[in-house]
Structure formats: C-alpha cells, structure tokens
C-alpha cells in the first residue's frame, strides 16, 4: 500500500498543490493606493472561499528525466477539496479528499479507502520542488509576515508591485524573507523569491502565460526552480479552470471519490 503511495505522489501534496494553484487565481480589479499588506491581502482574499474546478499538469524536470502527472481538482472554500489523478495510468483513478483537517486517499487498484495520518498531511510531494509550508499554506502570507512595498517592476510584461515579506518572530514559517511581485491589475502573483534565514535564495517561482481561464485573466504556467540544484524544476500548467462548477458540499464525499471523474 505504502509502496504504491510512495510511488505516486504523497497525498498532502495534491491538496496543497491544488490550493496553491487556486491561490494564484485573482480577479482583475484595479485598486489604487493600497498598502503592501493590503495588496498581499487582496491577492490572498480573492482566492479564498470560492469554488473551483481545474484540470492541470505537473511536470517534474530533473537533469536526466522528466515525469508528468495529470489531475483534476475541485475545491469549495478552504474546507473541501477533491483531487483525481488521470495520468500516469499506474496511478489513474487515485483520488484524495480533504475535509478541514482530515484527508482520505482512495486507491482503486487495491480498492481501499485510506485515512491519511496527520504526518502524511504535512508532507509535500518529494518529487516536486515544493516545501511543506507552501503545500499546506499553514502560515498566512497576510498574518504571519510584515510587509514592505519596495517599488514597481515589470514581470512577464505586467506592471507589478514588488513586496518584501519578513516573518513575525513567532510565526510558523521556514523562510528568512520572501520577495513577491504582485500584478497591479488583477493582483496575480507573477513571481516569488524565497530566501532562507541567512539571506540565501532557496527557490524561485515564476508565473507566465497569462490568459483567460474560467473568465479570469491569470497565469497558466508556473515554474518552480530550486536555487541550489541545477537542472531541477517543477512546472505547473493549468489547462482549464472553472470558478463556478455545479458542485456543493455533497460533491465532496467518499462515494464520489470512488467514481471516475
């Protein structure tokens, strides 16, 4: 069981990933004269408490190989998420259901519903270049950091606010500081640089290919590049997005996990 689990993605990652990607979505609303904190809050708020359905591909790139995982994901607020793997065929039909702090994994090959343990929830997918903190979003970009507006810069052809985030002393955060570039229109996170406590760059996230997805303009391609591992990166491609899927709480059930989506 675990063998198969580890061969595919660890479950926490799916949900975290789905949340991360939903977080990247932002409605185009022009606002003027916002503080650094308000800008981050806008980027954060706009992604909360919403319904979504997305079809995505994740590609893990290593110097000698690449592997892709295709999946569909649904979310409702922060409490519910369901992720269904469509490729690779070895893992096809595996699904993950999250409700608040609980999570289940359905493994169709062995026809078993597995209750994920708390430590599995806190686990990122080892293959990808995410840290656990990103995946779980346990920390709040708004509440756990102080924010400073450093200026403006164009990223991928978009005018962006450049903001420095420094964690508050007792915040549950692994970073020394973070630089985020948030588009002035639409509050899209176009770039992020994550530094350790010694001020060394650990990871870069670069968003691009802004296009209309589910009626909103948002980046459809994200590259996560670890600073100290040449040739390593993780790519996320959002193939389609729907912000008004016809689902409610009853969609997020073990019964639905078992049925191919």
């Amino acid at each position: 069981m675990n063998y198969h689990l580890k061969q595919s993605m660890t479950p926490g990652s799916w949900l975290g990933l789905a949340l991360l990607l939903v977080l990247l979505a932002a409605a185009p609303q022009a606002q003027a004269q916002l503080s650094a904190k308000e800008i981050i809050q806008k980027a954060d708020e706009l992604t909360r408490g919403q319904k979504s359905h997305a079809v995505m591909r994740m590609t893990v790139v290593r110097p000698s190989y690449t592997r892709t995982v295709d999946f569909k994901t649904w979310s409702l607020g922060r409490d519910y998420a369901l992720t269904y793997i469509t490729d690779p065929v070895r893992d096809k039909g595996q699904s993950f259901l999250k409700h608040k702090t609980e999570m289940w994994n359905w493994q169709p090959r062995i026809e078993r519903m597995i209750k994920m343990s708390p430590s599995m929830l806190a686990q990122g997918w080892m293959g990808s270049d995410y840290s656990n903190d990103d995946l779980l979003r346990e920390s709040s970009m708004v509440e756990d950091y102080t924010h400073e507006l450093l200026g403006s810069q164009d990223i991928a052809g978009l005018a962006c606010h450049k903001i420095k985030l420094v964690p508050k002393p007792d915040a549950p955060v692994v970073w020394g500081h973070i630089l985020l570039w948030i588009s002035k229109e639409g509050f899209m996170q176009m770039r992020g640089e994550y530094y350790d406590e010694y001020g060394e760059l650990v990871r870069t996230e670069a968003a691009s290919e802004v296009r209309e997805l589910g009626g909103r303009r948002m980046p459809s391609h994200i590259e996560i590049v670890p600073a100290d591992q040449p040739g390593h990166k993780t790519l996320i491609d959002i193939q389609s997005m729907d912000f008004a899927p016809a689902i409610d709480e009853s969609f997020f059930s073990q019964q639905n996990m078992r049925r191919p989506q």
Binding site: E102, I110, S253, Q255
Partner: peptide, 24 residues
C-alpha cells in the same frame, strides 16, 4: 504476494447506503 495487489474477489451482493461524507 506483492505481485497481486488487486487481490482475489469474492462472489457477493453488496448493498451500501452512504449516510454522509465519510459514513455509511
């Protein structure tokens, strides 16, 4: 028997009523 993760089946009738998200 690691080469047979699906395991054998049994000839059965199963009726299930899902009473909630994770209950039945």
């Amino acid at each position: 028997d690691f080469d047979y993760v699906e395991r054998p089946g049994s000839d059965a009738l199963r009726l299930r009523y899902n009473t909630g998200m994770a209950s039945s």
